[in-house]
Design a protein around this nucleic acid. Structure first.
Lengths: 337, 337
DNA sequence: GTTAGCACTGAGGCATGGCGAGTGCTAACC
DNA sequence: GGTTAGCACTCGCCATGCCTCAGTGCTAAC
């Protein structure tokens, strides 16, 4: 019994099953692939694969389907990356180049990726760490309430309402605004906390309390929003592959709606931020995703923000991985320096 | 055959069916409701109701279920508004009062409404028309590209990248900024176009081109974003009521994802902006929602923005309507003047 | 207008049995 | 040892047929 052929058999099983949704038997296998041996031999190989936990039989007289472990081996060692079709490349380019602001880019990205893969696509907002302060604005909403707006040079705009802790006048506020802007303009967001301290220190005592409150707000703005948001599209594709989620897609929708879960999941898949990572079935930390797989990769200058696709474990991994990788590259290029 | 009793029968059918998901027969009806007549009489009434198209029998030997028309009559004439439980009232109050900025309020609102009704909740961003300009900011991203940020006194922030049509320096831009801000601050957004014209007219000829480009951008900002966005939550509830969408929830998810469809639908339901409007099954203009009902109402100062719930036609209308109404009221109060 | 009674209808549940895909095993073969 | 043919065996699936029963519509009497 040859090892290489066994892998070849596993690959054939995965491919056929992904294609047909039906357990694949030894006979069908020799018919659809020229393996050069008879079905009996394949049966022996399949028995061995089953012993190793790579495939399983749903019931006695049915063919075999891959297990999570089988998919894992397939993804790690067997599958060849499938290049995108020229049409797909063109679609990516066309759709993403017409857009201007960040929201727009991300929105188009997920829609495109969802359409390309026929699955659910998610994209995380890029981290701000490398971005620099382009502008800061304070607006008085009520005597004690200030709307702080932070504009980064990436085009990202963050806003938050801050309780100033004391009543402020418009004059005081614009004085503070000038002070903050003067010393913070151009500061990289990850260095913001230190710079804010020096702004507070250099403020006249009478303004210090207010300065402190505003600084706290700005800091929260820069840090809290880092990984907070994501955009998603293609949830309707879940319903189409209804059959693939035996238990119903409810738990999957729940996971998707709880952005915290998804964001956590995406950042846990970080190992190699540039490579495409795959999390298969029960490998997922969240129970609702036990029948789902996530394919994700990083994008942007330091590849810390993630873009990915979620679908049934029975998915076309090579194609999905290729699409995710291609989209991430275009995305990086557009947002690039 | 008495008219009032016939309506009573319809009401009983709707209530039982909503409760049990099963076609309800004449015998079960007399058992569960004290109608004071025998099942034979009910049968006569039911036959009449069927002739009028208010109920229908899925097959010969089954009970009856309401038609869209039956639900319509039920909603319009029969159902009594069900007051919320004190616990629910408290939940609304608690959840909404802890929040500060608009995004946060709307996010909490949909989640709450989804949880309250066990269905999908949607809320449209409030229109800007009554809002006034609080602040305008221009940021130079590239020599010809300007990021315009418009901050309304409602706390809403809108941004967009504008092509200035010519190269601008930081100095020129801040001069223009001062000019715009000076004459536009406090302007209601619906009057913005006129005011923008006068700003352009009063600009020195050398700046006129740039002023025009920026004005166009601001105008687009104020108008285009009016009805554009919405937030949604509770899609997982759709999966739970899987049975209620015989065809699968795919088309429903598609409709929800195509925000244009939903926004259109919500604003079409405007008739009486303060009252709770219901759109039932095939009354919906979108085919994918043929098995769904939408319960919506307006909120905010002029009740032009909508908040609503989407679920199967077989939904508990009185409770849903009560929840939507209550949430809209709290929402108006919080965003109110 | 209401009721009792009755014949009728059709869905749903259940047992039956044949079909066929697919397996595992054994014995022969290279 | 690995490969193959052959064969008995196992179930899942589906079609069939039967029975039950909820619920109806109708008629005739109240």
């Amino acid at each position: 019994m040859s090892e290489p052929r066994k892998l070849e058999v596993l690959r054939a099983i995965v491919e056929d099953y992904v294609h047909s949704r039906e357990p694949v038997g030894s006979k069908a296998l020799v018919e659809r692939h020229h393996l050069g041996v008879s079905s009996a031999t394949i049966r022996n190989d399949m028995a061995a694969l089953e012993d190793e936990g790579l495939i399983t039989a749903p019931h006695t007289s049915a063919g075999r389907i891959p297990t999570d472990k089988g998919y894992r081996l397939f993804v790690d060692q067997i599958s060849a990356v499938k290049p995108l079709s020229p049409a797909e490349r063109r679609a990516i380019q066309a759709l993403l180049e017409g857009s201007e602001d960040l929201d727009d880019v991300l929105d188009r990205t997920v829609r495109l990726l969802a359409q390309l893969t026929n699955q659910v696509a998610v994209v995380q907002y890029p981290h701000l760490s490398r971005a620099k302060v382009r502008h800061i604005e304070f607006v008085l909403l009520a005597p004690r309430k200030v709307l702080a707006v932070l504009i980064a040079d990436t085009g990202k705009v963050e806003q938050r309402v801050i309780d100033a802790g004391q009543e402020l006048s418009d004059e005081v506020l614009s004085e503070l605004r000038a002070r903050f802007l003067g010393s913070l303009s151009g500061t990289p967001l990850n260095l913001l906390p230190q710079s804010l301290q020096s702004v507070i220190a250099s403020s006249p005592p009478a303004r210090r309390g207010a300065a402190q409150a505003l600084a706290r707000g700005l800091e929260a703005l820069a840090t809290s929003s880092r990984e907070e948001r994501m955009v998603m599209a293609g949830t309707a594709n879940l319903a189409r592959s209804n059959v693939d989620f035996p238990l119903s897609i409810g738990p999957v929708l729940e996971a998707l709606e709880e952005q915290v879960v998804m964001l956590r999941l995406l950042s846990d898949m970080a190992e190699d931020p540039r490579g495409v990572t795959v999390s298969i079935g029960r490998e997922n930390p969240y129970d609702g995703l036990a029948e789902a797989s996530v394919v994700a990769t990083g994008y942007g200058p330091d590849a810390t923000a993630k873009v990915g696709v979620l679908g049934p474990t029975r998915m076309d991994y090579p194609t999905t991985m290729a699409a995710v990788r291609a989209v991430a590259r275009y995305l990086s290029r557009i947002l690039g320096p």
